[in-house]
C-alpha cells in the first residue's frame, strides 16, 4: 500500500520533468528557456528528496541539496548573466520550427518508452518509471542542441541531457555514490562556466553566437 502510494507520488513528480522539457522545445525566448530549465532542476531536486524519503537513503538529501545549489541557483545565474552581458537578440532562432519540433519530441518520448520496455520488465525499483523519462530527456536535450542556432541554447540542451542522465542513475540504482555525484556536480559547474566564457569570447571575436556561421573551422 505504502509502496504503491510512493510510486504514484514519484510518477506525479516525474511527469512535470517531461512537460517542462517540451515547454523548452516550444519556447522562443532564451531567457525563458533558462528559467524553465531552473524549474526542471528544482523539480529534479524535489524528486531526489522524495526518493530519499521513501527509500531511507540519507545521501540523496545531500544530492538534492547540491542540485538546488548548483543547478537551480548557480548555473542559471551564470547563463542569464551572460545572455544579458552579450545582449544577443532574445529570440531562440530555430532551425526546425516549434510545431514540428514538438511533434518530433513526442516521437522521441514514444521511442524512449518503446526502447526501455524490455528493461523495465526486469527492474524492481520504486523509481523504475523514471527510466523512460530519463531517456526522453537525453534525446530531447540532444534534439535541442541540433535544432537551435544560438550557442547558449546548445548549453541548455546539454544541461537537459545531463538532467536526463542524472535521472537515469536515480531510476536504475537509486543514485550513484555521493563521491561520484559530487564529482559530476563539480564537473557540470565547471563545464557550464567554461562554456559560458567560451560563448562570451566567441561573441567578442565573431560578433555572433550563431553556430551556423561558425562553419569555417574545418580543414
Amino acid at each position: 500500500m505504502i509502496a504503491e502510494t510512493a510510486e504514484q507520488i514519484l510518477n506525479l513528480l516525474t511527469t512535470p520533468l517531461l512537460i517542462l522539457s517540451l515547454m523548452i522545445v516550444g519556447q522562443s525566448r532564451i531567457g525563458a528557456s533558462i528559467r524553465l530549465y531552473t524549474f526542471q532542476s528544482a523539480n529534479l531536486a524535489l524528486l531526489c528528496f522524495a526518493v530519499g524519503y521513501f527509500e531511507q537513503e540519507f545521501s540523496l538529501y545531500w544530492v538534492g541539496l547540491l542540485t538546488l545549489v548548483i543547478k537551480v541557483v548557480l548555473i542559471p545565474t551564470v547563463l542569464l548573466y551572460i545572455v544579458n552581458k552579450i545582449k544577443v537578440a532574445r529570440e531562440v532562432e530555430q532551425l526546425i520550427g516549434a510545431p514540428s519540433s514538438l511533434i518530433i519530441s513526442a516521437a522521441l518520448i514514444g521511442l524512449s518508452y518503446y526502447t526501455t520496455r524490455p528493461i523495465l520488465e526486469d527492474l524492481y525499483v520504486v523509481t523504475k518509471d523514471c527510466l523512460p523519462v530519463s531517456i526522453a530527456l537525453v534525446l530531447i536535450g540532444l534534439f535541442i542542441m541540433i535544432g537551435r542556432k544560438k550557442a547558449v541554447m546548445q548549453i541548455v540542451g546539454l544541461l537537459i541531457m545531463e538532467n536526463g542522465i542524472f535521472l537515469a542513475a536515480l531510476a536504475t540504482t537509486l543514485g550513484m555514490p555521493l563521491a561520484v555525484e559530487l564529482g559530476i556536480f563539480f564537473d557540470l559547474l565547471v563545464g557550464a562556466l567554461i562554456m559560458g566564457i567560451l560563448v562570451y569570447h566567441i561573441n567578442q571575436t565573431f560578433e555572433t553566437i550563431d553556430v551556423d556561421k561558425l562553419t569555417r573551422l574545418k580543414g
Binding site: P118, G147, V211, D212
Partner: peptide, 25 residues
C-alpha cells in the same frame, strides 16, 4: 561528410544514438 556545421555533427550523433537504441532493444 564534414560540413563543418556543429548541427550536422550533432545530428550524426543523434542518429547513431537512436539507431543504437532501436537495434539494442
Amino acid at each position: 561528410m564534414q560540413t563543418g556545421s556543429i548541427h550536422t555533427y550533432l545530428a550524426y550523433i543523434f542518429m547513431t544514438l537512436i539507431l543504437l537504441l532501436i537495434f539494442a532493444r
